[in-house]
Design a protein around this nucleic acid. Structure first.
Lengths: 235, 235
DNA sequence: GCAAAAGTGTTGAGGATACACCCATGG
DNA sequence: CCATGGGTGTATCCTCAACACTTTTGC
């Protein structure tokens, strides 16, 4: 029995903007929508919220269902409530964004599911207001990554400084002096140098690093300084 | 006729955390809930979202209905979707926060409406998860105000530098050297000195300033630097 | 041996902090 | 005349940006 019986009830959805990094460019994961309207058109990972699940739960479930992804960094972004954003029926949608290590799931995603990666700069037209969500997600990760070490979520557990730099450069669409970048990163105390080298990128090889978890949680909330001249960036 | 007829529909609410500054301390506006459950207990300004209104519209409407406030700074904060956050029936709520000049509405609020201001540090127990929303709003305005000039929304059109400093000090619960604070503020080019003085705070009087709207929108997105040592703040 | 990427130090400029005294005026 | 808050300048430090050469090794 409903106690708030006079109130209107609404459709509630979640949509996830999934970011991945392949070592070159920042990408987003899209699927072709499975039902009408806009069936077959490119869409974020989305679905309706069920009666007995929270929003975070719903986004986790939907991401798992559509892509098999589990245990990834997932954060609420914004809730979109325009009455006409879905032409069929008024639907309020809470957008989330996820950051994942693209290589960890690449084959799984293309084989078992029908999600595809697109470079951020070359994504197809998206349904409804999903392009707006992607824009907001991009702004949010730029904003957050300029001050907090979230981009490590996009890399494998073991990564090299040049890989990290390429990631920052592609997220912020800029170039950074490698001497200064390396100094900044090492100065945070967030990474630990390993003995092993990655020989894939060069003949000499680059040392692997991994996150220093002790410092990670402690420093996460502090304002770091990963990007030179953040003032001049359009955030 | 519903095209998504198989999907569950949900109750949707908005709740507004309204901040005000009286020259001394940061305060929030609360009302006593008008209906069951928790009737008579202290609550944020909240209400259900109707069928034909967007979320921003709903928050504006509800704020107006409950307090008479109109045209104030209002920003979406976060959406709370735990299934049991309202004991009567599952309700998803999108929280907003507002920043207003407390003096502008003080008498109106206490006479025409039954909202009351409470110092942030001495607020009563709140219904449901409203205390969590207030905490999140507090973190958000600290975070945002450390980098963007949003706190001017809490002051009258004409304000003095000492007033502004007291505001920053109370939001960040710290003390700032007045020479450095004044330099920082003036260096942004965000304020214009007026000829008139405010004689209320001292015998000598303090010059009034007002926002320089030309620079305001241009500089809003840049990372400013209003707070010394933001690293050390718990944000 | 050479091309291609990794790794590393120093210097200079500018911005941030620390700090103390005079000013205006109402009582 | 004095107490109270308002207003201002400077020296120092330190952080950040600019900048170039050596190392390694697969081919």
């Amino acid at each position: 029995m409903h106690k708030y019986s006079k109130q209107t009830r609404h459709l509630l959805a979640v949509d996830c903007v999934v970011f991945g990094f392949d070592g070159e460019t920042l990408k987003i994961l899209l699927i072709q929508r499975a039902f009408q309207p806009e069936k077959g058109n490119w869409s974020l990972m989305g679905g309706f919220v069920e009666a007995n699940e929270g929003l975070d739960e719903a986004s986790t479930r939907i991401l798992k269902q559509l892509t098999g992804l589990d245990g990834v960094y997932l954060e609420q972004l914004h809730t979109y409530g325009d009455t006409n954003r879905d032409p069929i029926e008024r639907t309020v949608s809470t957008a989330y964004f996820a950051l994942i290590d693209i290589n960890k799931y690449e084959t799984q995603l293309s084989n078992d599911y029908h999600a595809e990666w697109f470079p951020l700069t070359a994504a197809p037209k998206l349904i409804f207001d999903h392009a707006e969500m992607v824009e907001a997600a991009k702004r949010r990760i730029r904003y957050k990554a300029a001050l907090h070490p979230i981009l490590f979520e996009l890399l494998p557990k073991k990564f090299t400084i040049p890989q990290l730099q390429t990631l920052y450069e592609s997220v912020f669409n800029t170039t950074i002096d490698k001497r200064n970048f390396s100094k900044r990163v090492l100065a945070t105390g967030l990474v630990i140098k390993l003995a092993e080298k990655d020989k894939a990128g060069s003949k000499r090889g680059a040392y692997y690093y991994q996150l220093n978890m002790d410092n990670y949680y402690a420093k996460f909330q502090a304002f770091l300084n990963f990007i030179p001249n953040p003032d001049t960036l359009l955030l």
